[in-house]
Simulated scan of single mutants.
Amino acid sequence: MENFFTVKQISEKYGKSEETIKRWLRKGNKFPNAIKHSDKEGWKIPISDVEYAENTENKTLIRENSETFIGEDLNTRTLVATVYQIATMTYPSEELINILSFVGLKRTLELLLVLRQSPSKVKNPTAFLKKAITEGWTPQTIPQRVERQKPFSKPCRKEIVPTWLNQSEAAQKDVATKEDSTEELLERYDLLKSFYEMGNESAKDQLQLLQKVLEKRGISF
């Protein structure tokens, strides 16, 4: 013989008021085999109805949660692929979509910013992003490329001499052209004089040539 629940027992079981349970019973859709012989005896709800209702609710909840998870997963994958395309103008590989979907959209945006800020061109984005994830790179902590310093060498006097001082004699005559302003020639004269006083003999002829040009322009020495 089947056992039954009372309205009070079902109310306590579901955490609902007795009036809510009675409303369910009157509609007949939740516990279809419930019976009521009299107001005194009240409703009798078969245990089989309660078990069936609970199993149905559990299956529905599982299905809804699964659909929500799948929907969110698909949405994340789509967004990840889209933002990657915007940042790189290329479509990500399936492997890269899986990686970025796993870390989430917010982290993906950070990683793509790190990728864009890389001081050198990234030839392998997948390997770069894997390393960025593993080492926890952020836009604030991305490693900067350090230029290799050249060995220190004492500057020689020749390095600071203008290149036109080392040109051929024919080319040196062009050091003072008609297009040069007097002010430019005076600056050049002062520079040549400094080099000559430092012991650079190659500046002597140029200094004399420039002096004659300036004298023709009314500058006296």
Rank of each mutant, 00 (worst) to 15 (best):
13 K>H: 11
117 Q>R: 06
73 D>L: 14
121 K>W: 05
137 W>P: 02
40 K>D: 01
127 A>G: 09
30 K>E: 13
136 G>T: 01
120 S>P: 02
76 T>G: 02
128 F>H: 00
64 E>A: 05
7 V>I: 15
53 A>M: 11
47 I>H: 10
97 I>T: 06
92 P>F: 13
123 K>P: 00
59 K>H: 11
67 E>W: 07
100 L>P: 00
51 E>L: 02
54 E>L: 15
54 E>I: 11
97 I>H: 02
71 G>Q: 15
56 T>F: 13
89 M>C: 08
6 T>D: 02
51 E>M: 03
65 N>S: 15
126 T>Y: 07
31 F>R: 02
83 V>S: 11
65 N>D: 14
132 A>S: 05
90 T>P: 02
38 S>M: 02
27 K>P: 04
41 E>Y: 11
36 K>V: 06
18 E>N: 08
56 T>P: 06
128 F>P: 00
96 L>W: 07
97 I>E: 01
18 E>H: 05
85 Q>F: 14
138 T>K: 05
116 R>W: 03
133 I>V: 02
66 S>E: 14
94 E>F: 10
102 F>E: 13
99 I>A: 06
29 N>D: 14
130 K>Q: 11
56 T>Y: 12
128 F>L: 04
28 G>E: 12
78 T>I: 10
79 L>W: 10
65 N>P: 05
129 L>D: 00
20 T>R: 14
17 S>E: 07
128 F>C: 04
34 A>N: 09
116 R>N: 06
88 T>D: 06
52 Y>L: 14
109 L>S: 08
126 T>S: 03
44 K>V: 03
130 K>R: 14
102 F>A: 09
115 L>I: 09
62 I>M: 09
120 S>L: 08
44 K>M: 13
43 W>V: 04
144 Q>A: 15
98 N>C: 07
88 T>H: 02
56 T>I: 15
124 N>L: 12
121 K>G: 05
110 E>S: 13
115 L>E: 04
43 W>G: 01
90 T>G: 01
111 L>W: 00
123 K>S: 12
96 L>D: 07
117 Q>Y: 07
24 W>M: 15
130 K>L: 14
15 G>F: 08
89 M>H: 12
51 E>Q: 11
141 T>L: 01
122 V>H: 03
76 T>F: 03
99 I>E: 08
140 Q>N: 09
87 A>Y: 07
53 A>I: 01
38 S>G: 08
9 Q>V: 03
139 P>G: 10
29 N>V: 10
44 K>L: 15
15 G>L: 06
88 T>C: 05
43 W>S: 01
30 K>Y: 04
36 K>G: 03
71 G>M: 12
140 Q>K: 10
97 I>A: 07
55 N>I: 10
25 L>A: 06
75 N>M: 09
6 T>I: 04
124 N>A: 12
133 I>S: 00
114 V>T: 09
82 T>K: 10
30 K>I: 15
135 E>L: 01
63 R>Q: 14
136 G>Y: 01
108 T>L: 09
71 G>T: 15
54 E>H: 08
74 L>Y: 09
6 T>S: 10
